[in-house]
């Protein structure tokens, strides 16, 4: 079912590839987002805290995967944007407790997005391992600032006590001492529309087509007249913005921001999460984050050294199922629907 594309064969190949995966992917997406939205009614309050972390890190991992899936670049320093937005959100809440929180979140995330556009100028020019190494260095630089600039970031102590007694959602709508459930709902209320909008932008707009075309054949895209550097840069900024939303919400849901939210460990954790879930599916990283959070929770109940087992499991996953859990699921599903169909 190839749709004849007006922009040439490159686009119609894209669309044909897209068409085959559409139905199963759409059903899985609906199920996943419905689960995120309905979670407060489905899981006990005790598990909601973990789930809140999983959802926010999942949003962050989706941000990471926007660069990997759509531009083919593996960022090794994406915690920079998550962390900068988390610090910004804490400082904004402290400075403007009366301003509606959604505005502050958007402000903090926009700051992260702008930072992405700025730093992307250096990083996005490189590809492959060089991109990864450069982003790691940039991430380490921002970590160093957070670590050293005690007056603003609190250094190793971090920032706390920035949450106002009443969180202003809209003028006239306040949450006094918000509960875990309410904080979770706030996170979900951002995650669902913003990820859907990002998905639409990347899959169904001319900009998204341009991003995918640049990944598949940069030379061809350049000949077609695209400014390929600007396309990749814009996508990087978008990924930084999405990571920023997650970081800002992270500050609110923890009431505390420290160098943990900007360090190398977080940058690697988000890579692991994204690849556990599967990077070929837009929502895979969200799935991966949930598996990681609940898996590590279970493991840490059994052994203090859960990271060892997590590392071993991840190595096994990389060798056996490089496309992650979502890749495995879609493979199984296609076997079920069309057995022995090459």
């Amino acid at each position: 079912m190839t749709i004849p594309g007006r922009l040439g064969p490159a686009l119609s190949v894209l669309k044909a590839e897209r068409g085959r995966r559409d139905l199963g992917g759409a059903l899985a997406t609906l199920a996943l987002l419905a689960a995120v939205a309905a979670a407060p009614w489905l899981v006990p309050v005790a598990a909601l805290n973990d789930l809140g972390q999983a959802v926010l890190l999942g949003l962050f991992a989706i941000g990471f995967n926007i660069v990997f899936k759509y531009s083919g670049l593996l960022s090794f320093g994406h915690a920079a944007f998550f962390g900068v937005a988390a610090y910004a959100e804490a400082l904004l809440l402290r400075a403007f407790p009366a301003v509606p929180v959604p505005l502050l979140i958007l402000g903090a995330a926009a700051g992260a997005g702008l930072l992405g556009l700025l730093l992307g100028h250096v990083c996005v020019r490189r590809t492959g391992a060089y991109f990864s190494m450069t982003t790691l260095a940039v991430g380490a630089f921002l970590y160093t600032i957070a670590f050293k600039w005690h007056a603003v970031t609190g250094g190793t102590d971090g920032l706390d006590e920035f949450m106002p007694a009443a969180l202003v959602l809209l003028p006239g709508w306040r949450l006094t001492n918000p509960s875990i459930t309410e904080i979770y709902e706030l996170s979900a209320a951002f995650l669902i529309p913003f990820t859907l909008a990002t998905w639409l932008i990347l899959e169904h707009t001319p900009f998204g087509n341009a991003v995918q075309l640049v990944r598949q054949n940069e030379e061809r895209a350049a000949f077609l007249g695209y400014d390929t550097h600007r396309v990749k840069l814009t996508n990087y900024g978008l990924a930084a913005f999405v990571a920023g939303i997650a970081g800002a919400l992270w500050a609110i849901s923890n009431g505390f921001v420290s160098t943990d939210s900007i360090d190398l460990t977080l940058s690697t954790t988000v890579i692991i999460m994204a690849f556990i879930g599967g990077t070929a599916w837009f929502w895979g990283p969200l799935l991966g984050s949930a598996i990681y959070i609940f898996g590590s929770d279970r493991l840490s109940a059994v052994t203090q050294h859960w990271q060892l087992w997590m590392g071993l499991a991840f190595i096994a996953l990389v060798l056996a199922f490089p496309r992650g859990i979502a890749g495995l699921a879609s493979l199984l599903a296609s076997r079920l629907v069309r057995p022995r169909d090459g």
């Binding site: 593996l74 090794f76 492959g128 391992a129 990864s132 690697t268 890579i271 692991i272 690849f275 050294h305 990271q307 060892l308 997590m310 590392g311 071993l312 991840f314 190595i315 990389v318 060798l319 490089p322």
Partner: peptide
């Protein structure tokens, strides 16, 4: 290619870090 190499060695770095702590 770089991506699987990076992922595998990240996993190994995790394992070594945790083993030394152990």
């Amino acid at each position: 290619g770089h991506t699987p190499q990076l992922l595998l060695t990240i996993g190994l770095a995790y394992v070594i870090a945790e083993t030394t702590k152990m």
